[in-house]
Design a protein around this nucleic acid. Sequence first.
DNA 1: AATGACCGTTGCACACAATGCAACACTGCG
DNA 2: CGCAGTGTTGCATTGTGTGCAACGGTCATT
Lengths: 254, 254
Amino acid sequence: MSQTVDRALSILPLLAEGPADLGRVADRLGVHKSTALRLLRTLHDHGFVYRQADQRYRLGARLISLAQEAMENLDVREIAHPHLVRLNEQVGHTVHLAVHEEGEVLYIDKVESRYPVRMYSRIGKPVAITVAAVAKLLLADLPENERRAVVDQLDYPMYTARSTPNADGFLKELAKVREQGWATDLGGHEESINCVAAPIRGADGRVVAAMSVSAPNVVVTADELLTLLPLVRRTADAISGEYSGRTPVKEVTT
Amino acid sequence: MSQTVDRALSILPLLAEGPADLGRVADRLGVHKSTALRLLRTLHDHGFVYRQADQRYRLGARLISLAQEAMENLDVREIAHPHLVRLNEQVGHTVHLAVHEEGEVLYIDKVESRYPVRMYSRIGKPVAITVAAVAKLLLADLPENERRAVVDQLDYPMYTARSTPNADGFLKELAKVREQGWATDLGGHEESINCVAAPIRGADGRVVAAMSVSAPNVVVTADELLTLLPLVRRTADAISGEYSGRTPVKEVTT
DNA sequence: AATGACCGTTGCACACAATGCAACACTGCG
DNA sequence: CGCAGTGTTGCATTGTGTGCAACGGTCATT
């Protein structure tokens, strides 16, 4: 692993917290100012950091445009989006789409509730993996050994009294989810918010993404939300069909 | 400038074009495969690239979450402030900066007029949403359904004879504002006070804030105030440029 | 005005870390 | 069964990144 690149890349999350000046960056990296300067310069030349008027550095536009491109290249997202919008129009609540990557689960699309009360989430943000309904679906589908590995190295924060407490409980929950083919999160992350989720599968039957509908108690009860399950599953199945049906991208050759 | 980092960063735009395998990356960089491998590994460890099932590399999720976090932590006020001060020095009148949040529009910065006659406003205070020029800009940019939702649940107090009377009239005004890219409030809130406002846009083109210049009739007429419009718009554009991270200096890079 | 403190910046010599090479391991294919 | 195509590893070399110290600018303090 390359030390120089390692250091340079470590600057980016640091700057994501907010603008920082040269000294601060050097300190946080544990390197000499001149070293930090040269790293920042290189990042700057590539547009990854931007130097604002007061000479402090912040993340640059290139990063944002790259992220945008990265999302566009996710073909599940592209296919799923219109379905998510339609579902949102029917039920009114917030709809999420998430994928698993390297031990994390992230939201890659979101259609906001039309009710004024919204839940906090962010595209690109890692979800609360031990409790989120979409995370359960994605992890439940992993091969035994991978699942075990991921589950073991997780923390199990008790967001609420109903959060998943430990690895054992989580594995049981995953088994159940895999069995029934859908998942819920009933107040496991935020006391007053419930979700129902369904998996999206590729041609080989493996789960490639998961989608969920979330709503706070003040709008609908958990039981009412559960009545939407068939609709959510049908939507997920429709996306699965389209995703596995034809070639997603215009792959080169023959 | 650091060669290693330079090469590593060059990989990212390359991968943005689509997934690539090791050989392709090495070729495009003009380096040995082993070198490319080590760079990719480092990028991988930081989550910037993701290795998909067929061993090819893709842009990773970390990129997306970083960009999102960066945008969230971007402080419009901080960036805008010097511009507002400069504008105030040029025109002398009160300058406001406002954002939209949860159905309300709030002033988040203000530079006082240097004329003795000042208008009443307060940072953090919700603005008169149905008449204020900045509010029109912020609401005009919302997606159709959200805009409708906000507009419908508003009251339409008749501060003056020229206040927006009802939802229909407001929607028409918003359409006009969106069309022309700027807004005014001519005596709609207080009989003797006029404003001109312009939008500040983020990297994705969406309106993130709005700024305005306000002055009472006793100092300048509405017509005179309107002559400042180009200057206000230029200032807003300058802030937009800086906010979205486009480098204003001599940089050329790709 | 003069002083000092604080940043960012630059040139340089040294050492270490990144590089390319060649050999190796693995996979699928003819 | 070998062959061609991958990705991967150990190693010697040198080029490249590093820390240091000195410089230059800006700002606040006296």
